[in-house]
Write a protein that binds this DNA or RNA. Sequence first.
DNA 1: TGCGCCATGTCAGGAGTCTGACATAGGCTG
DNA 2: CAGCCTATGTCAGACTCCTGACATGGCGCA
Lengths: 147, 147
Amino acid sequence: MAQREVDLDSSVGYALKQAATALRAAMEAALEPLSLTVTQYSCLELLGQRPGLSAAELARGVFVTRQSMQSVLQGLQDRGLLSRSTAPQGRALPTQLTPAGTDLLGRASRAIAGVESRMLQDRSAAEVARLRADLAACVTALEGRQP
Amino acid sequence: MAQREVDLDSSVGYALKQAATALRAAMEAALEPLSLTVTQYSCLELLGQRPGLSAAELARGVFVTRQSMQSVLQGLQDRGLLSRSTAPQGRALPTQLTPAGTDLLGRASRAIAGVESRMLQDRSAAEVARLRADLAACVTALEGRQP
DNA sequence: TGCGCCATGTCAGGAGTCTGACATAGGCTG
DNA sequence: CAGCCTATGTCAGACTCCTGACATGGCGCA
């Protein structure tokens, strides 16, 4: 039958990459007026919703390494958007948003909410929830084990 | 009501990034025994299904720039996996897989097909098709225009 | 108490990708 | 036909992120 192993036109993986790429581009465009990168915004958003997270926990939540998160935090700290407790190495240091950080995060969140609503236009709440659940199921299936 | 603009636990964008990250990690693990990166595999797969594509067209299909695709193609060419016609600049040069490239692509495709089937385990064909259509709709909605 | 183990923060180096720029080929329009 | 515009291939530079490595703090267990 010469059935193709992977067909681009019906591959969910390819569609997933396409969607993630388009979303990232839209987010970059929306955040550009605020001088924020997607990684920086993700970090602020996560910190806003889970105050006191350590750098390593932030890194896992934003899908980058601790080393990368370090420079991201440094940049945000230099802009006065967040504060980190200084302490010896080897210890988890909680991080918090400053008032300026909270303010900027608010504007960024509104911009990103606009992007997400545009992405999901003409979808019912149930359809959106279903899509989100489908994606979450993909994650758990992939993380289960890799034979 | 203090409704949060963006809620991580219900954000489709966050779930999308999570899924794309998990998929990429699984693909890297599956391709590692073949000494192929995800970008290299994507390039080979696209070339296998659309023979004769130019470097610029490949770049768009794999979501990288022409400049990045150049070094990817150079590496694959050095390994004897594909051949490019040499000609003056400013002209679209078709690219083809060599027999060795076709052979390696076959093995890589099987590995990636395994990843995708694991990602979609316990899903009916209709559910898979629906998920793919949902993702495609997100792409078109995002690319429509950015106000 | 002491030891091993894991997690965190940090420093240095390298691989991959992107932005900017240039020359050339092809196509469209006047 | 000439001129303009777009697209392609390519070179150079910079940036981001990752891998590797190290020292330290917290925790469980003998």
